[in-house]
Simulated assay, not measured.
Amino acid sequence: MGVFDFIKDVGEKLFGASEAQAASAEKIKAEIEKHGLDAKDLKVDVSGDTVKISGTAASNEVREKIILAAGNTLGTAKVEEALQVEKSEPESRFYTVKKGDNLSRIAEAEYGKGQAGRYKDIFEANKPMLKDPDKIYPGQVLRIPA
Rank of each mutant, 00 (worst) to 15 (best):
G2K: 06
K8N: 12
S104R: 14
S24P: 01
F94H: 10
D5P: 12
N72V: 02
D101F: 09
P128T: 00
V44Y: 06
P90W: 05
G11A: 10
K78C: 07
E12L: 15
S54A: 08
K127A: 08
N126G: 08
E124K: 11
L37V: 06
K98L: 09
G11W: 07
P145F: 04
T50G: 07
K127M: 08
A125V: 06
E124S: 00
E31V: 06
M129P: 01
T50I: 13
T76D: 07
E108H: 06
G112P: 02
A116G: 10
K8M: 14
Y119P: 00
V97P: 13
P128I: 03
Y111D: 00
I122S: 07
A25Y: 03
V3I: 15
T73M: 01
S59R: 03
L142V: 03
R93S: 14
E81I: 00
K65E: 11
K27I: 00
N126Q: 06
F15Q: 13
T73P: 08
M1Y: 01
G2I: 02
Y95D: 04
D41Q: 14
V79I: 13
P133I: 05
K27S: 03
I122M: 03
T76V: 15
L130F: 01
A20P: 15
Y95A: 06
E64P: 11
L68R: 06
R143H: 03
K8Q: 15
G112N: 01
S59Q: 10
I32R: 05
K43N: 11
K113A: 11
V97G: 04
Y95P: 02
V51R: 03
S92A: 14
D121M: 03
E19I: 10
I122A: 00
V97C: 10
A25H: 02
I106F: 10
S88M: 09
L37T: 09
R63G: 00
D38W: 05
P133M: 02
E81G: 01
V10I: 15
K34T: 04
R105Q: 12
I106H: 09
N60V: 11
F94S: 04
P133C: 06
N126A: 07
S47A: 15
L130P: 09
V141D: 04
A69Y: 08
A58Q: 12
D5S: 13
E12K: 15
A69K: 01
D41V: 05
A69L: 03
I66E: 11
E86T: 05
A22C: 12
K27C: 03
K127N: 02
A57T: 07
I7H: 14
Y137V: 09
S88K: 14
K43I: 11
I32V: 14
I66A: 07
A39S: 09
S59F: 09
F6P: 02
E91A: 13
A82H: 09
